[in-house]
Design a protein around this nucleic acid. Sequence first.
DNA 1: GTGAAAGCGCTAACAT
DNA 2: ATGTTAGCGCTTTCAC
Lengths: 342, 342
Amino acid sequence: MTAGGQDNRDKAQRVTMATVGRIAGVSQVTVSRALSDPSKVAPGTLRRIRAAVDATGFVPNALAGALASRRSHLVSALVPSIANLTYAAMIHAFGSSLRDAGYQMLLSETGASPEAEEHAVRLHLSRRPDAMMLTGVTHSAGARRALIGADIPVVELWDISESPVDFCVGFSHAEAGRAAAEFAVAQGYRRAAVIYADDERARRRKAAFASRFAALTGAEVADSPLHGAASLGAGRAGLSALLDGPGLGGGGVVFCSSDVAAQGALAEAQARGLSVPRDVAVIGFGDQDFAVDTVPPLTTVRVDRERLGRLAAQQLLARIEGTGTTETKYDLGFELIARASA
Amino acid sequence: MTAGGQDNRDKAQRVTMATVGRIAGVSQVTVSRALSDPSKVAPGTLRRIRAAVDATGFVPNALAGALASRRSHLVSALVPSIANLTYAAMIHAFGSSLRDAGYQMLLSETGASPEAEEHAVRLHLSRRPDAMMLTGVTHSAGARRALIGADIPVVELWDISESPVDFCVGFSHAEAGRAAAEFAVAQGYRRAAVIYADDERARRRKAAFASRFAALTGAEVADSPLHGAASLGAGRAGLSALLDGPGLGGGGVVFCSSDVAAQGALAEAQARGLSVPRDVAVIGFGDQDFAVDTVPPLTTVRVDRERLGRLAAQQLLARIEGTGTTETKYDLGFELIARASA
DNA sequence: GTGAAAGCGCTAACAT
DNA sequence: ATGTTAGCGCTTTCAC
């Protein structure tokens, strides 16, 4: 009745591998082996150890394990925002792939600024992740230096670059903008405008769209920058400004930097009693799951976010295991999906 | 030229506090002190240490620090899905509050099953978080046991219970359903239906709505369960099934388990040329940012997700520091927002 | 198949 | 103000 009751009065007595071993009648190392590679331990021993684990509710200390083995089984992921639907499916796929391989994702938001990102990079590196994922290809010099010094695989996701820190998985945002412009012209539109979020990649798509559209038609492209994140309301306001201004007087097509903004444009048109695409046409970006169900269904640029996330994770894992390639750029492209809104 | 060049041929030479100390001419502990509490170190020493840190690109090893101090400055967060907008703002607020206090959030998705959650709980506990956040109040017995054994503060968010593992921050889903029913009846609706996602809390809101509406009007409430996650398409399909079935023949009001589903119902009504709320009225749930911008603006149940997330983080942090209360339930309530859709 | 010893890079006492 | 000594709870290496 007093068994072992002597020294658990202070703090909750910590259960370690040594505790489990004592109960199972083996040493601490054997417990370690039983948990990490059961085949290295005799069946009977294994049974006793497992019983002791259950009896004590032992939870291994991954901190100590990582410190000793220099493998944390942690992969860092830095994204501008987790509330942004644009990245959600990609992060989900990335995280799932990691989990399937026995890794955990340490996710943080960095906002839009490179300085905040650099701070987050350092913070994450202090946890000794086995690899890191960054969004986009623009990073501060300090962040690049820290990353290189960490000597771990690093993937830059959602964009491509000729000089990644390590390797990148994404697509060309400029090409996507150009493709949208070419589609718009092919559809017969001769007036165009852009509604875009305040985001570096969105600006690149916008610039490419505008210059390509102008080159093809000679028409200048009006634009309406969104303040803050893309949202239904921001999209509505964007189209509203365009419609009330000189840019889109006689109708035309509006290229939006996200499907959410495009959905807002659709709502604004609906509220004004305008017919889409007759009075104003809308092209989105991203092909979110809802794009097919809007009224009318949204013409948009599809990016396979699941595949981006999965490939990034796979390549990272391969490099962690040392079986990776030396490829530095994976361009997964995009696809223009013509539905009814443009 | 050959300075220190002797033993960095194998793997990248690890920079530790000892390395930094050697360069700065102090011992390893002094480096530790300089970094954790600069006031404990002489100004000159501090300068030399900082110079050495910069020169070497030293990044502290938080694994070792956590192991030695038994404080990881890590807080676990388990949510059903990160792609679900319902939780996004709450997680964001939760994570931001933690970051401001010097903690990092270790976020994982658990899906809907308690078994998957239990597995995630164990995995997270192995990282020795200083606290943990769980979504909802339904957990497996094993998960509860592990959590209690871990002896850390645990908050259950987004719902309330009389017997939380530690404490909970949320609101009553049943009351929210009842409030929606009362509002619907007060608006004069005598026929109602529910579109709901396959989620325990959504089912509770639906059941409470249905029984209250029936009690008040004598009318039975039809329902349309969504398969899988709520989405625009699922909401459209939900209303479609209701409209084509017997349940909502002569019009009435539809209570949706999320604003996204409600937005889908709006889209379906629009596609069918139905007027909202005249032909069919719609009540959402959540008051997402877009609810005010739909056409017509969405009548919905507001839940202050930011406040939920912030309060959960604050209480967790207070308990970590030992300054917390022993309160076990924070009911933050909800508010019915009457706009134009019902 | 199992154990003993060393050490991962820090922090927490306790000196001085 | 700074250093010394002991761990934290594991994995790795080498013995047996």
